[in-house]
Nucleic acid binder design. Sequence first.
DNA 1: TAGTGGTCTAGACCACTAG
DNA 2: TAGTGGTCTAGACCACTAG
Lengths: 240, 240
Amino acid sequence: MASTIYERIVEDIRQKINKGIYAPGEMIPSENSLCREYGASRITIRKSLALLAEGGFIYSVPGKGSFVRKPNNDFHILHFNEMDIIKGHVDKIVLLGVKIIVPTGELIRQLKINKNQKVVVIRRLFYSKKDPFAYDVKYLPYDKCKPIVEEVIQYATFPELVSLSTPLFSLRKELTIGAENAQGEEQKALKVEKGHSLLVVEQKLFSDEDKPVGWGKIYYRGEYCHLRAVSSFNERVVKA
Amino acid sequence: MASTIYERIVEDIRQKINKGIYAPGEMIPSENSLCREYGASRITIRKSLALLAEGGFIYSVPGKGSFVRKPNNDFHILHFNEMDIIKGHVDKIVLLGVKIIVPTGELIRQLKINKNQKVVVIRRLFYSKKDPFAYDVKYLPYDKCKPIVEEVIQYATFPELVSLSTPLFSLRKELTIGAENAQGEEQKALKVEKGHSLLVVEQKLFSDEDKPVGWGKIYYRGEYCHLRAVSSFNERVVKA
DNA sequence: TAGTGGTCTAGACCACTAG
DNA sequence: TAGTGGTCTAGACCACTAG
């Protein structure tokens, strides 16, 4: 049972939306009407409406009113972290190598750097028992002032690696998830036959000013790894 | 430039967090201190803090104070919709068939039904130009009262299919994303060689009471389809 | 006991909408 | 012009925390 006035109001309106009493696209009563209906102050009503808006149930249009949002079940929360995904069955991480290289065309494009900007390449292999099951390659613009400490690199997530130059709070990340048949360096590293199905997660990190600060791919043996996501609809209101 | 008082306060505190003036785990000044510091009322300060909390920057502990959250770059927003993903290059959807079957063991487990509960199976094939590139199978508990209209089924998303029995607002969805080598019915339907890498998205839908109301898998030819996700950190505050 | 965040009220002014 | 949501204020009481 909700213990506050605004929680009771949220629950009541949420149920009216669910039952279709307030239908998608339609206007719900004005704040002043709701004040009278629930015998609450406008601030309390507004607190309830703010929660409903956060939960994706309604939206407000100044000068007009609050409207029921059309349900959108497309949004999902994906919890991804190259260390976590394998939690429970990662036994060993091997740092295959750290190199400083002249950027390839692909790297110049991805990291938006010029030819003279050297790049750090980090290659790692994740093991479950004795089998390698994930091969990870990351590229970072090389900065002479930033020391490369192998012990740190070995166990770091991508955001942690770039955090030396960019505060974690302002980091933006883009993931691209796909499936590929194993070939080239990843096939050799993972010791799978050619064509083995791999789940590939490409990560691209941006600084506060939207400058790329890291790019990389991680290749998981398909049978070892799945990503899980849950629809985010009304997530927040349910929590409240 | 922020036009309201609370937006200016949010921006100021956000920068202090970014610069490390307010460090992760540490307490920020109390609401009353902030009232004095910014010359604003407590409600305005609280509005700012609420936005910062929504954005994941801080959290509050009653009786103690507000604290800077440790950065978490693991959360991502994934926009998934079996129709949208292929937007731009889907030319045809073929409804391969709609059948009513006695549930297999797997279906009994997934949908938490008993042996006597029949199940509707829907199979579709998505084409780009002349090539099939996605094979979709969905299972729904069969309900005699709900008519099966083929024209509706052909173009519906999974939530739309179950919306006949469950309001869309209360729907919860779980996705499991993986990579598999093509085999069996999906290999035949997609007309790819055996072992071809497929991106597989499993969808499971739950009603308000957490009862499974749909289960299915969609198999994408790896070279045709990628899922994109972006880190959700401070998404909301940036918008504001 | 002093201080903290959480809840709630009454009241004011604003820009905007729509008849 | 009447009504709407957005912003902001001053003030009150509460349960909880920590010395």
